[in-house]
């Protein structure tokens, strides 16, 4: 069965670290970075890139629209 493989790109400077993407990620891919951005927020990042399926759930709930999602079908 073809399995989708995905990746996200976070606009680090726009991220406010609200963690809404993190709790809505069905594969537990997203974590919050220990480092902070220019505004002092712990930004979201892919802590487990292998598990991302590119489902876009994180991007559609992100209040600041900082997440871009990519997806490929893998056979």
């Amino acid at each position: 069965m073809a399995k989708a493989k995905g990746a996200i790109v976070v606009d680090v400077e726009r991220c406010k670290g609200c963690q809404v993407c993190m709790v809505n990620c069905p594969t537990d891919t997203i974590g919050m970075a220990e480092a902070v951005n220019g505004k002092g927020y712990h930004y979201a990042y892919m802590k487990d890139p292998e598990s991302c399926t590119g489902c876009t759930n994180c991007a559609v709930v992100c209040p600041d629209g900082v997440i871009t999602v990519y997806r490929v079908k893998k056979n």
């Binding site: 559609v60 871009t68 999602v69």
Partner: peptide, 22 residues
């Protein structure tokens, strides 16, 4: 492979809302 990106109809202005605001 792009499936979702921020719409260009939102300007580049930094949203003034608190983190997590709807």
């Amino acid at each position: 492979n792009l499936v979702y990106k921020r719409t260009p109809l939102l300007t580049d202005a930094y949203l003034s809302y608190c983190p997590g605001c709807g």
